[in-house]
Simulated scan of single mutants.
Amino acid sequence: MPEVLIDYGWWILGLVLLALEVAAPGVYLLFFGIAALIVGMNVFVLGTGWFGWQQQIIAFIVLSVAAALLGRRWYGNKSVAGDGERLNRRTARLVGRQAVLTEAIVDGRGRIAIEDSWWSVTGQDMPAGAHVRITGADGSVLVVEPAP
């Protein structure tokens, strides 16, 4: 039994780490799981006579670091395109949209209704019912201008 564990221990460890990666958030255990599977493959090909446990541990450490560096390089260059960068900034995703003033802008302040929400707006004075375009946001206050 111990010989079987030595022969297949790295594969078992690699598969357990990959299974935990699926259950755990983030990308941490993936690189260690890949390194363990590579060491397990080398133990299978070379045998424990040529590839002793000391070399296996060193190979696991080196491969884990190499996999983590390659993963960082691969995932570090990926940027989310589109609306993902504005996902948690509700005011940023409203920029560019047009709306109708529900309350006139008086002394630079008014209100509009968009998507079942009321928003305070700033801009030049305009009557209620005027069409405006959202050009920016200052915190939770939208900046508007007359729509063309």
Results as ranks from 00 to 15, higher is better:
residue 105 I to G: 02
residue 106 V to I: 15
residue 85 E to Y: 11
residue 122 T to F: 10
residue 138 D to C: 00
residue 15 L to H: 14
residue 123 G to P: 13
residue 40 G to L: 02
residue 113 A to Q: 10
residue 63 L to F: 14
residue 132 V to A: 01
residue 47 G to W: 14
residue 121 V to Y: 03
residue 125 D to W: 12
residue 120 S to N: 12
residue 4 V to T: 03
residue 18 L to W: 05
residue 73 R to I: 13
residue 95 V to H: 05
residue 34 I to E: 03
residue 120 S to D: 13
residue 130 A to G: 11
residue 51 F to N: 06
residue 41 M to G: 04
residue 113 A to L: 15
residue 71 G to D: 05
residue 51 F to K: 04
residue 100 V to L: 04
residue 50 W to K: 01
residue 34 I to W: 06
residue 42 N to P: 04
residue 42 N to L: 14
residue 146 P to R: 00
residue 126 M to D: 05
residue 125 D to K: 04
residue 77 N to S: 12
residue 24 A to C: 10
residue 50 W to S: 07
residue 52 G to E: 13
residue 130 A to R: 07
residue 16 V to N: 01
residue 4 V to I: 09
residue 125 D to P: 11
residue 12 I to H: 10
residue 4 V to R: 00
residue 59 A to Q: 06
residue 15 L to T: 15
residue 25 P to V: 01
residue 113 A to G: 05
residue 71 G to N: 01
residue 44 F to L: 10
residue 83 D to I: 09
residue 66 A to K: 07
residue 59 A to Y: 03
residue 105 I to F: 06
residue 81 A to R: 11
residue 3 E to F: 08
residue 79 S to T: 15
residue 135 T to Y: 12
residue 138 D to R: 01
residue 60 F to E: 02
residue 95 V to C: 11
residue 130 A to F: 08
residue 146 P to V: 00
residue 36 A to V: 06
residue 116 D to T: 03
residue 56 Q to A: 03
residue 67 A to I: 14
residue 9 G to R: 02
residue 122 T to I: 13
residue 72 R to W: 15
residue 8 Y to L: 14
residue 44 F to R: 07
residue 11 W to K: 02
residue 58 I to Y: 09
residue 66 A to M: 12
residue 8 Y to K: 05
residue 126 M to G: 01
residue 123 G to S: 12
residue 145 E to C: 00
residue 119 W to E: 11
residue 46 L to D: 01
residue 60 F to V: 06
residue 95 V to W: 04
residue 71 G to F: 13
residue 3 E to M: 03
residue 60 F to W: 12
residue 136 G to C: 09
residue 55 Q to N: 11
residue 16 V to T: 02
residue 22 V to T: 14
residue 135 T to S: 13
residue 11 W to I: 14
residue 96 G to T: 07
residue 122 T to V: 15
residue 94 L to S: 02
residue 65 V to R: 00
residue 85 E to D: 12
residue 36 A to Y: 03
residue 8 Y to I: 12
residue 144 V to C: 04
residue 31 F to D: 03
residue 5 L to V: 09
residue 101 L to V: 08
residue 17 L to N: 01
residue 53 W to D: 05
residue 120 S to C: 01
residue 76 G to P: 06
residue 95 V to R: 04
residue 110 G to A: 08
residue 135 T to V: 15
residue 117 S to Y: 06
residue 104 A to R: 03
residue 53 W to A: 11
residue 135 T to M: 15
residue 111 R to M: 12
residue 89 R to D: 15
residue 111 R to V: 10
residue 74 W to N: 11
residue 146 P to S: 00
residue 118 W to G: 04
residue 85 E to N: 10
residue 110 G to Q: 08
residue 65 V to Q: 00
residue 136 G to V: 05
residue 12 I to L: 15
residue 55 Q to R: 08
residue 2 P to K: 01
residue 5 L to F: 06
residue 123 G to I: 05
residue 63 L to K: 10
residue 125 D to I: 08
residue 118 W to I: 07
residue 66 A to D: 04
residue 44 F to E: 09
residue 65 V to T: 02
residue 78 K to E: 13
residue 116 D to A: 07
residue 47 G to P: 11
residue 14 G to S: 02
residue 122 T to Y: 04
residue 14 G to E: 05
residue 56 Q to N: 07
residue 139 G to V: 14
residue 107 D to V: 04
residue 91 T to S: 14
residue 56 Q to V: 09
residue 26 G to W: 15
residue 77 N to K: 08
residue 141 V to Y: 08
residue 93 R to T: 06
residue 117 S to M: 12
residue 103 E to T: 09
residue 61 I to S: 08
residue 8 Y to F: 15
residue 84 G to I: 06
residue 144 V to S: 01
